[in-house]
């Protein structure tokens, strides 16, 4: 475990000594809760419509596919007209695009970002690498099956899929959300132990709390 995460005694600027245990003090270790749809069906459908038409993507590119997301902001593709925009912070984002291969080091960051997003949240696996490893199927450092580590709503096959494929996938995702089937966040909370076991199996130096929201 890294030095800055270890339990230690710190002397403050006023000479007062206190004990710091970063993993317990700075994070909350409470497990995630499932939030089932709470309102009447008509309200839920209205909310799902709003959710589907206002997709905010986390600005986190994990692999080579990140380069395919950038053109979507440009005049040629302009994803904004579909209600899609990018947010720089996981707190405000709804959609996490795993854009291409996911190395173990990035997986750790991806999990942290995913857990900080608010329910309901969606994951889109972009590229063959997230489906079965793609061209990195025998790599020592990339995962081969994304849905073992976080619930995935939609996969886009290809190596790499073109920006048009991403635009089409947004439309598909909208259908999934409108149908009320995009309950990945709840699936994550319900199968939390299974997901955690899978994650810990590949991330050898687990130096963060089990759930960081």
């Amino acid at each position: 475990m890294k030095e800055e995460l270890q339990k230690r005694t710190v002397k403050g600027p006023d000479g007062f000594e206190f004990e710091v245990d970063p993993l317990n003090d700075y994070y909350c270790s409470e497990a995630p809760k499932a939030h089932p749809p709470a309102y009447a069906k008509i309200v839920e459908s209205f909310f799902n419509w709003a959710r589907s038409e206002s997709i905010w993507i986390l600005g986190f590119g994990t692999g080579c596919g990140a380069i395919e997301m950038r053109p979507l902001m440009t005049p040629r593709f302009d994803a904004y007209r579909f209600g899609v925009q990018w947010r720089p912070t996981p707190r405000q984002a709804n959609l996490f695009i795993i854009s291409g291969y996911l190395s173990v080091k990035t997986l750790k960051r991806a999990i942290r970002s995913y857990e900080q997003m608010q329910n309901p949240k969606y994951v889109l696996g972009l590229g063959s690498c997230t489906i079965n490893g793609g061209m990195y199927w025998d790599s020592y450092n990339t995962i081969k099956k994304l849905d073992d580590y976080m619930p995935v709503d939609l996969f886009v096959a290809g190596c790499m899929p073109r920006p048009e494929a991403l635009l089409a996938s947004f439309e598909e995702l909208k259908k999934v959300i409108k149908a009320g089937k995009a309950e990945g966040a709840n699936a994550y909370a319900e199968n939390f132990d299974w997901y955690k076991a899978n994650q810990k199996k590949v991330i050898k130096d687990w130096d963060m709390p089990d759930y960081n929201w």
């Binding site: 038409e53 206002s54 302009d78 904004y80 007209r81 209600g83 966040a185 929201w213």
Partner: peptide, 26 residues
């Protein structure tokens, strides 16, 4: 001005409803 089509005219309402409809908050 940037030669894009731009957001839909009612997009701000959608974003607002979306944010109200999120289930969890900390």
């Amino acid at each position: 001005a940037g030669r894009r089509y731009g957001i839909r005219i009612h997009q701000n309402f959608l974003d607002l409803f979306k944010n109200y409809s999120l289930r969890s908050s900390i």
